[in-house]
Simulated assay, not measured.
Amino acid sequence: MTNCNHQPSNIWMKVCIWIYIWIDDNSVVEFIGRIFIAAVSFLAALGFLLYGGRLFFMLRRFPIESKGRRKKLHEVGSVTAICFTCFLIRCFVVILSAFDSDASLDVLDHPILNLIYYMLVEILPSALVLYILRKLPPKRISAQYHPIR
């Protein structure tokens, strides 16, 4: 579930922090950058929990005989849980790396650790969400629109 939280202002803020770090490698700016990323991840996790939870409970109030209710409940609940969990994991890992110099996310010497981290917070959640939402709804043809033959 990656990049769900990237609004244009967040991206520009991140780019400005990276440029400043590139020009003047300052540990305080790196710390601020990590706290910023952790805060954005935490807000994204809360957003998924709040809006996904509201949609889930709204769908539960639909009549039981509603067509596709159980499937939609499963989809919304699964996507909400996956995205919330992954953004929360990212938040905790980035906070840990900000306060503990031994727990740096820049583990270029350890490609297995990089693979595990990005599999957990980037690739696996994206694959699960795509798998859950793989079926597109059928196209509706308007009663007023008739294709030209």
Rank of each mutant, 00 (worst) to 15 (best):
E122P: 04
N10H: 14
I148L: 01
I21W: 02
L130K: 10
Q144A: 09
D25R: 09
G33Q: 09
N5C: 15
E122W: 13
V79A: 05
P137A: 03
Y131C: 07
V15L: 09
G52R: 05
Y145H: 06
S78K: 03
W12Q: 09
R90Y: 12
K67M: 03
P125G: 07
L108C: 04
D25V: 03
R149T: 06
I95K: 10
S142K: 10
I89A: 13
F84K: 08
R134V: 04
L128F: 12
D24G: 02
F92C: 05
N26R: 10
L115N: 04
G53K: 01
S66G: 04
S66P: 00
S126K: 01
R60P: 00
S142C: 07
H146R: 12
G68V: 14
S126V: 12
L50D: 11
P111M: 09
Q144W: 07
K135M: 15
P147V: 03
V107C: 07
S9G: 01
P138R: 10
S104T: 15
V40L: 11
S104H: 08
L115V: 01
L136Y: 15
H6T: 13
V94W: 05
I132K: 10
F48A: 11
D109V: 00
C86T: 09
V79F: 05
S126W: 07
V93M: 05
N10Q: 12
N26K: 07
L96A: 11
I123Q: 11
T80A: 04
G77R: 05
